[in-house]
Design a protein around this nucleic acid. Structure first.
Length: 572
DNA sequence: CAGTGTACTTAGGATTCGGTTA
DNA sequence: TAACCGAATCCTAAGTACACTG
């Protein structure tokens, strides 16, 4: 059966080279590794050129006013814009910034400005604050003008043609220069992210397409025609030396098909996960250390949905780990704790320096193995010294086609959503069902450790909600009193009003519960990246819930394929 | 098998939008 | 009409995975 890819831009369906054979999807695409046959686009939107500050905005060094060269001034404004941010108080940030700033200074500046503490950026900071206030206070008309201009830019640069279809581009703007903001304890925070010039940019498009033009008087680094990749534009960033790309929006066919494929791989894992589990349980007993380590690591990845944990170059980024890169210092073993046997306590920083803290009872064999792995090791030694992600993935590839460590996260997330929805959904009113959905989603977010900082406005917003609830309760008790004293002929209408109020109250209370439970949990990441959207679509169909209650516009665009495909009986 | 480079997905915080309330 | 607030969107960093090389 041919599947027609639903296009959210032109409402036509794109012919997709995918088909169903029973429950298996076979991709005919990419037998030769090509990702497209035609690609045409307008290239990136370059960052706006630097506009020097007006002369009344002054910089002071050691109490004395100093006029900076445009180059030094630009970098100074990057710092000035961040004055209120915690970053600027951090030693590493200040040190890196100052070092890179000095590189941009003219020689007289360099010899004068030798101490960051003596730099006074306050007028610059105030100036930018005033500017943003002014922007907020603009007239409706001026705001509209900006909006129109943004829309024009989007229409001109925000789309490309790929294989006969107009597709939305995700990030069509070149990242502007600024100060690098790493996450966690990043050794490079504060370094200068330099301005990207056309000469740094590689364009990728069809040979036979209209090539994007570089800005007048400039040249691209290269125009290439590589249809084995999906990116339209790339450049190398100066902080880590990593390559940055401009790619298509998640609503595009090329991203959507890949997403679909990801979930199909996870469903394949579902079919053989029991076999794999038996296998790694057996491997806990292996004579070979490397196999035991592999098996225990896989157990963690499966049970706890840990990330694979690639090796990282020391000193290049924050010290974070995943499963294979766990160190002895990241776990504690308790033969008995809080009435449970064989408890492993995890405490480490994962991706984005988000803390993972968990106490889990494990099987005795796992526990004994961990003791063995930790024998005669220092805290900073690798827990799995005979293992890395490459070894693990090679093993997984042998167990199932397309299997890698990250598939377990997708599989466990999706299966958890499906189970939780089954368990939690009751035949109640709509808000209660939505709460059940969010709770199922939350179970996944907790499993995947998707945390967020408690919003600064959290307490206040809870208070506001409580005020609304109290007001509604008052209305309701008033209404109740009315019902008692009502004459018979008015009773029906009063009852209706009464019912409506109760509904409104319940809705508010559900909202409050949801918000409270969600205080430090981020649902978006799992919803967007780990949960097979067809589970949600089927759930909506089954319970008669409009899809808009679950997915906003952008999400509906991203998951158009699933909305188009899944019926109420879909099973992950 | 280590080291390097590339391409792509996943991630939380910052910023902006747009509707509501004071 | 400004202030406020939650949701949506933007931004880009930080992961995973794998090919290639020697």
């Amino acid at each position: 059966i041919l599947f027609l890819w639903p296009c959210c831009i032109c409402t036509m369906k794109i012919f997709s080279f995918s088909c169903h054979v029973l429950t298996n999807h076979i991709w005919f695409r990419a037998t030769d590794g090509s990702k497209w046959s035609f690609l045409e686009h307008k290239g990136p939107v370059m960052a706006a050129p630097y506009e020097p500050l007006p002369s009344n905005v002054r910089f002071f060094y050691d109490g004395k006013q100093m006029k900076l060269s445009p180059e030094a001034e630009e970098v100074a404004t990057f710092f000035a814009k961040m004055l209120d941010h915690e970053y600027t108080t951090k030693d590493t940030f200040r040190k890196n910034f100052f070092k890179d700033w000095r590189k941009e200074m003219a020689s007289e500046e360099k010899s004068k400005i030798t101490d960051l503490k003596k730099c006074n950026f306050n007028e610059m900071g105030e100036y930018f604050k005033a500017q943003s206030e002014a922007r907020k206070a603009m007239t409706k008309d001026d705001k509209l003008k900006i909006k129109v201009e943004n829309e024009r830019l989007l229409q001109e640069y925000g789309f490309c043609i790929m294989d006969n279809h107009k597709e939305r581009i995700a990030n069509f703007r070149i990242e502007p220069p600024g100060l690098f903001r790493g996450r966690g304890d990043h050794p490079k925070m504060g370094m200068l992210k330099r301005r990207i010039r056309p000469e740094d940019i590689i364009i990728n498009c069809s040979k036979g397409s209209k090539h994007p033009k570089p800005p007048p008087g400039t040249k691209w680094k290269e125009v290439r025609h590589d249809n084995k990749v999906t990116w339209l534009v790339s450049w190398t960033e100066n902080i880590q030396g990593a390559i940055k790309y401009i790619m298509l929006n998640p609503s595009s066919r090329i991203k959507g098909e890949k997403d679909w494929q990801k979930y199909e791989t996870a469903r394949n894992l579902k079919k053989c996960v029991e076999r794999l589990r038996n296998q790694y349980r057996e491997d806990w007993k292996s004579k070979e250390m490397r196999i035991r380590q592999r098996a225990v690591a896989l157990y963690f990845i499966d049970k706890l949905a840990l990330r694979a944990g690639n090796e990282k170059e020391e000193g290049e980024s924050a010290d974070t780990v995943g499963c294979c890169s766990l160190r002895v210092e990241h776990i504690n073993l308790y033969p008995e704790k809080d009435g449970q046997d064989f408890v492993v306590e995890f405490d480490f920083l994962g991706k984005d320096s988000i803390r993972y803290y968990n106490k889990v009872p494990v099987e005795k064999r796992v526990f004994k193995n961990l003791q063995l792995f930790m024998e005669n090791k220092q805290p900073e030694d690798d827990l799995f010294d005979r293992l890395n992600t490459s070894i693990l993935n090679k093993h997984l590839q042998e167990l199932m086609d397309g299997l890698t460590a990250k598939v377990f996260r997708t599989y466990n997330a999706s299966i958890t959503l499906q189970q939780q929805l089954k368990e939690l959904t009751t035949d109640e009113n709509l808000p209660a069902k939505i709460l059940s959905y969010n709770r199922a989603n939350r179970a996944v977010a907790i499993l995947c450790n998707h945390q967020r900082a408690q919003p600064k406005t959290f307490e206040k917003s809870m208070q506001n909600l409580q005020t609304k609830i109290d007001a509604k309760k008052d209305q309701l008790s008033d209404a109740k009193r009315d019902v008692k004293s009502a004459k018979a002929d008015l009773k029906v209408r009063r009852d209706e009003k009464f019912k409506k109020l109760e509904e409104q109250l319940m809705k508010l209370e559900v909202q409050a519960t949801d918000r409270e439970e969600n205080k430090q949990i981020a649902l978006g990441t799992s919803k967007l990246n780990y949960l097979d959207p067809r589970i949600s679509v089927a759930w909506c169909k089954k319970w008669g819930i409009p899809i808009e209650k679950i997915y906003n516009k952008t999400q509906r665009e991203k998951f158009a394929w699933a909305i188009d495909m899944a019926e109420d009986d879909y099973e992950f």
